[in-house]
Write a protein that binds this DNA or RNA. Structure first.
Lengths: 206, 206
DNA sequence: GTCTATACCATGATAGAC
DNA sequence: GTCTATCATGGTATAGAC
């Protein structure tokens, strides 16, 4: 008697449900998506969803795990390479993060939903995903590069500088000074690196 | 015949509905709150809400306007004072923003919901609120302080550094290096200012 | 093992009594 | 100005057909 809970075979339908759910949950969040929405998108009846998942909560969690894991590789790859100097790794990470957030809009929005989620249980079940792994790596860099700055706050700052512009991406368009090129991940990455290198005292202000 | 649409008198009940709605929408977002929830919180029946507001959408918009305007004064005050030098104004703004986000949790979460909202109409109707005014002011500072950095991106970076840690606040607790004092707005503000001043090259790295 | 048909309940919204 | 009663819609979940 296997100890597995229900570990449904990775059926075609189950995969399809997960893929569609990513799109829906990314767009509208947990409360904005109904089981009927998912069912309609997959072209089955709601009950079919309940065969593959024990309920909406389970579907949401599995969808998040599925999506986050799927997009994590690029980031963790950029942070690998213990031999490279810290600054090179930082630049690689910032570039990769901006790249991923630009290309994978769904990933970006799912992250945003997760941050708003106050449900501790969900957050805890997601614990061992990209979020934590990447932060740990950035934290290591922050310890090496932050001259006296608190490494936790510095790691958070680095992530803030890259992630937040995407979270505000929709509203940014209406703000002064916006140019389409600001949506280029390379442009943002270079800006962030420049700011991190010298702050606002690149050359002497008087 | 007055041209006013319906500009309901600022009745006691209407105010009460708005105040309660702030709490509810901040916690659970638009889709997470039902008219019945609001009614129950105010201890009236759902129909009473419909007397004061034309519908849920209207209630949500009015709630946002009410809440954002209410908390805006501190920020705009910090940015006032054309005579003060730019760095002093920047420090005042960063400090005030961190302060407000710490104290006014509801304000912080409503902002987060607004950022996730893809509804252009809502966003547009909220156009002339804190969001824009503060950004414009920070943009002005960015033009003066950013040595060659793009002012739009720099303004966004400044805001990112302060706001994002609050958005991640819930998850931050589980990440390495977290200390309770990181929740102190003064600690965060000083960290942000230090980072903005010199970046990671505070003293010569080798 | 996979899914349809269906029951049940909560929701946004309205009409009209008080 | 607020309530009761009610509707149509749509969300969650199950019993059972294939």
């Amino acid at each position: 008697m296997a100890a597995k809970k229900k570990r449904t075979t990775n059926s075609k339908t189950r995969e399809e449900i997960l893929e569609r759910s990513i799109l829906l949950f990314a767009k509208s969040g947990y409360n904005g998506v109904s089981m009927r929405d998912v069912a309609a998108a997959v072209r089955v009846t709601p009950a079919a969803i309940y065969y593959h998942f024990s309920g909406k909560e389970q579907l949401y969690l599995d969808t998040l795990r599925h999506a986050l894991k799927e997009k994590a590789s690029a980031l963790n790859a950029a942070l690998d390479g213990e031999e490279k100097p810290p600054w090179a790794r930082l630049e690689a990470f910032v570039g990769a993060l901006a790249q991923v957030l630009t290309q994978e809009k769904d990933f970006q929005r799912l992250l945003q939903w997760v941050l708003l989620d106050r449900n501790d249980k969900r957050l805890h079940k997601l614990g061992n995903t990209v979020l934590k792994d990447s932060f740990v790596a950035v934290y290591g860099l922050a310890e090496k590069l932050g001259n006296g700055l608190d490494p936790h706050l510095l790691a958070m700052s680095i992530i803030s500088l890259v992630v937040f512009p995407f979270e505000a991406g929709h509203a940014r368009r209406f703000l002064p000074g916006f140019k389409p090129q600001h949506d280029d991940p390379g442009v943002l990455a270079r800006h962030v690196i420049a700011l991190l290198r010298h702050g606002l005292s690149r050359r002497g202000r008087h």
